[in-house]
Design a protein around this nucleic acid. Structure first.
Lengths: 341, 341
DNA sequence: TGTTATTTTGTAAACGTTTGCAGAGATATT
DNA sequence: AATATCTCTGCAAACGTTTACAAAATAACA
């Protein structure tokens, strides 16, 4: 009934008239303890509802069983799925995960990392905020041999392990798909200009246009950002061009979905009046029939966790980049011109 | 360059020729240390890049600075928003949050709780899985005075603190709204039958029908569950009735959205052929113009955190139920009959 | 100057574990 | 029967803090 004053190893030892060392050994199934004593200890432990104090153990072993995760947000499906992948792997080894979100702010991100450090996490998995402002912080961490793995949004100038997809290649495929559908004035709504994914996807877009002999027009490219509410600005801009695009490739699904909503408001039909494709397929995108690139989020998380564990085990493990496969899912939002009713 | 062998309070003491006690006091800004020594200590600490070992501190103070959260899932927006609310409050007081998801399975939920216990969390915030199978477990925890707060999905037979909205009242309002729109054969797709929200919302639905003199027809009620993929079964059933409903009140937005998609597939128009309303407004629902009840998720999280902290401070604090306000947002999916084109 | 009060410091125990080392008993080997 | 080898147990230190308590240094007062 009362807030049970936590039985310790000492209580068991006293109750049994043996030393704490013996109890400890019995509890840990050490071979150098008599089967009978072990049995007694185990029984008594159960009777007294003994729960080991991992803090004490961790202190001694200089561990924390904690790993930290820093993501820009976890309201949309993307990062939660990655996190589930991470947990899947690390929980099996007894690790717990501290999750923090930067809310797309580098300043908050830095705070989070510091808190995680202070919480003595044994390693960190990071997807950086859109403004990419903590290069020095991560340099320090890497320098201090803090195990760290970047996912999705990485920092190219950093020598570090990372898990990504080939954004450039898949952006190429999206653009190529639009071209093959017969679209020729293809706009690109790019993300924040420091982000790795922005650069890669933009490059893929340009690659594709080049490959098919279409001139890259700066007017058809706008750095609009990664958050849904920024889509409106993109549409505003594109729809006011003298020479409007006939297709849009958006940096990600939130922007694409934002565009679809904004276009709908203006009575512009998709794909009849304009085609649209996204990236990092989202549930909403699926429902809205948006063509997009599916990312293996759970697998990204799992691989990142594995990479991190490797580093935790061996602080001098070589950096590794894992590039996972993805998939272009074609839907109604990019119906080929010739197939239209 | 090397993995810096963690400077401790002892290193500082040795370097300065003072005792560890003095260093500790200086670091903690105790008034009973000479300003000059404090200054020296602080300087040396900075120089040696001292970072306190909270594990040692926690061990001594019998704390962990950890609180646990168990939710059915955190892929959709709902629980993540609650979690952010929780973090907002507890982070300020130096707590970190361990998040675990049960994947709607009571068995996994029990495992998670045990892991959280083993991780020495100082308290737990729970939203139970759909099958509601851990009553005894929670009874034990409450009995052992483990601080615990239930949110959203609660267990009525448990004497415990909780944060909810008045599901019954808001279900009443939704149903009332449908009635006032002119619909008379209103079906209800209910959740899993053990869930508190299922019972409450069903009751609210019945209340409203009763209040407006409409007979409750068991045939128009189906316990379909809470997950989107269960919607199809509901539509299957309802659309095969001799006397089809003219409106559907779904237990939550995922089910409602699932219904909308399924109806669309069958060429049934919303709201022309059938009206539909959800519950716990979701981003997808908003985009799809689904009438729904908005829940103050962030606030739910914040309140739950406050309740938990109160219990952590005072293990004998009285149980408390906080009922937050909500809002019925009316959209196109429940257009009044007389307003139709 | 000596006494007392006050400020500053140090000593040591405590938190709950694990583990190297040594000692005690038991068993095996010659 | 004496010695060597095992098996089992206990002692004590260690992990990095905080904090009573005591001691020392300083300040205040007569």
């Amino acid at each position: 009934m009362s807030p049970s004053p936590k039985t310790t190893i000492k209580d068991i030892a006293k109750a049994l008239g043996v030393s704490v060392a013996t109890v400890s050994r019995a509890l840990n199934g050490s071979h150098e303890v008599h089967p009978l004593t072990q049995e007694k200890v185990l029984a008594k432990a159960k009777e007294l509802r003994y729960k080991p104090n991992i803090q004490a153990r961790n202190l001694l072993k200089r561990r924390s069983n904690l790993i930290g995760v820093v993501v820009p947000e976890f309201i949309t499906f993307f990062f939660p799925e990655i996190i589930i992948g991470i947990q899947e792997v690390v929980n099996k080894l007894g690790y717990q995960v501290l999750i923090s979100q930067s809310n797309e702010s580098s300043i908050q991100e830095a705070k989070n990392v510091e808190i995680l450090e202070a919480s003595m996490v044994e390693g960190i998995i990071v997807s950086v905020a859109k403004d990419c402002g903590n290069v020095d912080l991560y340099k320090r961490l890497i320098n201090e041999r803090m195990p760290i793995v970047f996912v999705n949004r990485v920092i190219s100038e950093l020598q570090a392990s990372q898990v990504v997809i080939d954004d450039r290649k898949w952006a190429f495929k999206v653009t190529e798909h639009l071209i093959k559908c017969g679209y020729s004035r293809i706009a690109h709504l790019a993300g924040n200009n420091h982000l790795s994914v922005t650069k890669e996807r933009l490059q893929g877009y340009k690659d594709a246009l080049g490959a098919y002999g279409i001139e890259v027009q700066d007017k058809l490219i706008m750095y609009v950002g990664v958050q849904q509410d920024r889509a409106k600005a993109g549409i505003n801009y594109l729809m006011n061009l003298k020479n409007k695009p006939d297709a849009i490739f958006a940096i990600n699904d939130p922007i694409a979905v934002g565009c679809m909503l904004e276009l709908k408001k203006r009575g512009i039909r998709i794909p009849e009046d304009i085609a649209i494709a996204g990236f990092s397929e989202s549930p909403i995108g699926r429902i809205m029939n948006l063509t997009s690139v599916f990312q293996p989020t759970f697998e990204i998380g799992r691989k990142a966790a594995e990479l991190l564990l490797k580093q935790i085990k061996d602080r001098n493990a070589a950096f590794e980049t894992i590039t996972l496969d993805a998939k272009l899912n074609i839907r109604h939002s990019t119906l080929p011109l010739h197939k239209r009713p």
